[in-house]
Design a protein around this nucleic acid. Sequence first.
RNA 1: GGCCCGUUCGUCUAGUGGUUAGGACUCAGGGUUUUCAUCUCUGCAACAGGAGUUCGAUUCUCCUACGGGCUACCA
Length: 475
Amino acid sequence: MTTNTPRVRFAPSPTGQLHLGGARTALFNWLFAKHHHGKFLLRIEDTDRQRSKQEHVDQICESMLWLGLTWDEGIVYQSKRLDIYQKAIQSLLKTDNAYRCFCSKDDLSRQREEAQKRGDGYQYNQACRNISEDVIEQKLSSSTPFTLRLRVPEKVITFKDRIYGEINVNTSELDDFIIARTDGHPTYNLVVVVDDDDMGITHVIRGEDHISNTPKQILIYDALVLPTPEFAHLPMILGPDKRRLSKRHGATGVQEYRDMGYLSEALNNYLALLGWNPGTEEEIFSLPRLTDVFSVEQIQKKPAVYDEKKLQWVSGQHLFKLSGKELMTGVRSIFPDWQKNEEDTYIENVCELLKLRAKSLTELKNISTYFFKDPKSYEEKAVRKRWKNDSVNSLVKQLLDELTSLENWTESGAEISLRKVAEEEGVSAGKLIHPVRLALSGVSAGPSLFAMMKLLGKETCLRRIETALGKLPTL
RNA sequence: GGCCCGUUCGUCUAGUGGUUAGGACUCAGGGUUUUCAUCUCUGCAACAGGAGUUCGAUUCUCCUACGGGCUACCA
C-alpha cells in the first residue's frame, strides 16, 4: 500500500487567472514532487459551472508552463468525472453514511440569517437526519428536491499536518454538511476526496485556507473506507496591508509579472522565499537548485507579506546572470518585434552592457533606447549641470576633431583621445566625459562612456556629437 | 459569535533555557566609479503584553491583545 514515490497535485479552480498564491502552492507541490522523484499532477476543479471558464484553464496552464512547473500526467478535469462521483455518492447512501435532506434552500438560509441575527453560530438542525422510510418515500414520490448530507459521527478528529503539527477538531463543530446538491452534483469536499484517492495522491499540499476543510474530508475518507493522504498546509501570502493578497495590491496574476519583465526563475525564487527558507543564508536559487534544497520542514507557519522591492532585487540578481543573447531572447518573448532590424550581435552586446543596471527585461529595454536611435532631446537637469555654456562647445569641438581622425575605433582608443584633449585644454577628463555622454545618450546615467562609444561606432558617435554641438546648451 | 491557526527589526527570516539576538530586502550615510548601477563599508531597526515554571526566560506553560483562515446546495 505504501508507495515510495510521492504523488502530489495542484488543483486550481478555473475561475480566474493563476495568481501569486496559487503559483506558490503549485511551486511547492512541484518542488516536493521533484525533490522526492515523485509525480506532480494537475487537476482542474471546474465543478462550478457558472464561474469556470475554459479561457482561465488555458491561462493557468500557460502560466504554469511559463514558470516551468510542468505536470506529469494528463490534466484531470472534474467536470468529466461526474459518473465517478455518483458512485461514491450512492455508496455513501447505501452505507447510511449519507442521508437525504428535503429542507428547502430558502428555509435553510432563513434559519441561518436568524441565527446570525441572534449572534449565534449556525448549524444545520438535522431535521432530516432521522426521518422515517415512509416520509422519505412520500417526499420522493412527490418529487421533493433533496440534497445529500454526510451523517457526521460524534468524535474528535485528529490529524497531523506536516507544517502545523497535530490538529484536533471535535465534530460537534461540524455540520452534517452537504455532499450532493439538489441537482445531484457533488460538492467540493466530496470530489476532492474521491479524486485525490483516485489519482493516488499521497501528500495533499495546499493553502492554509483549507485547513478547516480537512476534518470534513477525513470524515469522507473514513465513510468511504479510503486511506487518508498526508496533509501539509501552506501559510497564506498577504498584501502589504496584511490582508489577503488581491487586486488592490496591484499585480497579482502570474502573467502580469511576465509582462512586466520579471524572469520566471526570479519569480519562483522569490515565491519560494515567501514562507520557506533553506536553513542557510543562500538566497538566489535556480529552479534545479531549489529542487535540491527544498524541504517541507523549513516551511513557515505564519503568513508572509509580499514585498515587491525584494522581488525586484531577486529579479535583478537573476537578470545579471543571463548572457546578452538570453536577455535579447527574453525581451523579445515579451516584445516580439523588439529591434528586429538590428544585428543580433549588436543587440546582445547592448544587453550585456546594460544588464547590471536593470531589474527587469522591460527596464532593460527601456534604458537601451539610445543604442538604437539618436537622442531626440537632452535631459534638462544634466544639461544645466554638464553643459552650462558655450565654452563646453569649443571643448567638445576639439574632441570631435580628434575623434574624426581616430582610425582605430576601440574603447581604449576613444579613451586616449579624450584624455589627450582634456590634458591639452587643461581641464579634467570629467569636463569632457559628461557632455559627451549627454551628446551620445541624451541622459546622464549609463555604462562606461568608452564602452558605449565603441559599441555605437564611430559614425554614430561623430554624428551625435555634431548634432549636440548644434543644439546645446540652448534648449 | 463559534472553531482552527499564528505572533523575532518596516518586510522576508535565523536562532538559543544564559548570545553584543545573526543574515537578507528597504531606508540613511561613507568608499570605489567619468555618471548611474554594481560592489564594499557603516548605521537605523525586532523577541506583542501580562502572569507562571526556573538561579535565569525571546526560547517552556497559561491568559490577554492583535492578525489570519473557516463557518455556502463556491472551490
